[in-house]
Write a protein that binds this DNA or RNA. Structure first.
Lengths: 271, 271
DNA sequence: AATTATGTTCCGAATAATGGAACTTTGTTA
DNA sequence: TAACAAAGTTCCATTATTCGGAACATAATT
């Protein structure tokens, strides 16, 4: 049996590209509805999708019929619960997540801080799991969340496992949005940081994504380099100093290595 | 602003119905992959979907292109992380969930047992949130989970808010699978139980879905009856006696009422 | 009540999905 | 390791669905 984390998808289409195929158009609408800052009504969606009214109306109707979207009494569209059902089911059965879980807990206990597991998809990190201390609050909040790889520990760790050509290709045409004053702002800065990560075997995020939040992260990758991920220990800057992060680094790397080991074993000897 | 929980979808199609429309066929495949007991390869899916090989192959390819499915190196299909991203985002912004959250926590603290929030969809309950005590274990596990309404507290509570005609229509052609020896096995039994729930204002689940697990639940519904949901307090039978459940009932009902109140306020005076 | 903004339905034309068959790759057996 | 079988992929004329403009309904606003 093999680890059930799929390979990475195709390149991210630039947003400008017209979505192709019937499905592409529909998924574009799902994204539109899910990522909008506020719930949208028919006309709001109409103005964002350059479709004729009739067409859009039918597309939305189909999505609603299938339970992928829902419309409330005010005519506002929301992602349907059917997607939650699908996602939760697949999350629960995700083999990679299951393998990593005990290691995440161990890491959490040793460090006392929050532990994340994230997977690289293109230039985004999607968080697969999160283990916090006592406060059982909002565990879900981070799971499924997507963040740019260039400003997160897990992201930079995962990027460090790419070869130069692939790395270049991914990060050259990126928009480097400055989340904080410490956020990396261009490809060359990122390249040098990633090469430092390669050297020492782990990555830092020193308030680069969120002010006051730091982390150490180590890369996880399958033997064939097809799957890239990372583990991290995260905490508030006032409590988590650079010294502490450095002290934890070996533990994080060890956890990442253990996860890789378990994956290899689970897959059996072949390949 | 209104509560952002959509109305219920169309009736559940019986599984035998051939899915109609391009989207319907694709979603059917998503379900197939997500609900399968074990990961499936191309041929496995082929044998379950009565499509020609070429057709199925193209359909799966499209789903993979859009990130809705992923294929691992062994050719096994899995739900793509894109769905996790969509679902997590919409969950985080779900207004109904957000409104209910503080009430769930309060209920958890008072009772010391696990609290659930579930929404009725057809004859299924989909859990929207779960609050546990200290044991931080697998909080996620239940969220997004779907269970039959007829054997869960939340389900029976939600059903009790339907009028007779609607209730009849939903539960008459149901398959009553006996999960435990206490599971309700037919429509008439369910009807009488639901009418008891209507009388007292709350529902029990006495080991009807899972052996050793009991709960009390109270109904939540929008003014127009378009949205049906429920809150419950759940625990192991050895600790949670019928007496305790009865003692908690007023608290659960009060929590449900508070949630309804907050929803009304959030929606503003009109309607 | 009149008017405008918003949402829904229709139907010929345009486009994308279909499915059988040929082809390639991967795995199995002698 | 050669020969065979099973699994997976591509191709393309046919068929079914989607497209989109315009007419039709329904709410919201003045």
């Amino acid at each position: 049996m093999s680890v059930d984390l799929g390979s990475e998808g195709k390149e991210n289409k630039s947003r400008g590209d017209r979505e192709t195929g019937t499905l592409g158009k529909l998924v574009f609408l799902l994204d539109l509805v899910a990522l909008a800052d506020a719930p949208m009504r028919f006309t709001d969606i109409l103005s964002l999708s350059d479709q004729p009214r009739g067409t859009l109306h039918r597309q939305l109707s189909h999505l609603v019929e299938e339970g992928l979207l829902e419309v409330d009494r005010d005519g506002r569209y929301h992602i349907g619960l059917r997607l939650l059902k699908l996602a939760s089911r697949s999350w629960a059965r995700n083999e990679f997540r299951a393998i990593a879980e005990p290691h995440l807990h161990r890491l959490q206990e040793v460090t006392g801080e929050t532990v994340h597991l994230g997977v690289l998809r293109g230039t985004e990190v999607i968080y697969l799991d999160k283990v916090e201390g006592r406060q059982s609050v909002r565990m879900y909040s981070q799971i499924g969340n997507a963040s740019p790889a260039y400003c997160t520990g897990v992201g930079k760790a995962a990027l460090s496992a790419l070869d130069d050509a692939e790395l270049e290709a991914r990060i050259s045409s990126l928009e480097y949005r400055p989340y904080t004053e410490h956020t990396i702002r261009n490809a060359s800065k990122l390249l040098s940081d990633v090469s430092a990560v390669r050297g020492r075997g782990y990555a830092f995020d020193l308030e680069e994504h969120e002010s006051g939040i730091c982390c150490v992260a180590a890369p996880i990758h399958s033997d064939d380099g097809h799957m890239l991920a990372g583990v991290s220990v995260t905490g508030p800057a006032y409590r988590v100093t650079l010294e502490k992060l450095q002290a934890w680094a070996p533990l994080v790397v060890a956890a990442a290595d253990s996860i890789m080991m378990d994956m290899r074993n689970r897959m059996g000897p072949k390949r």
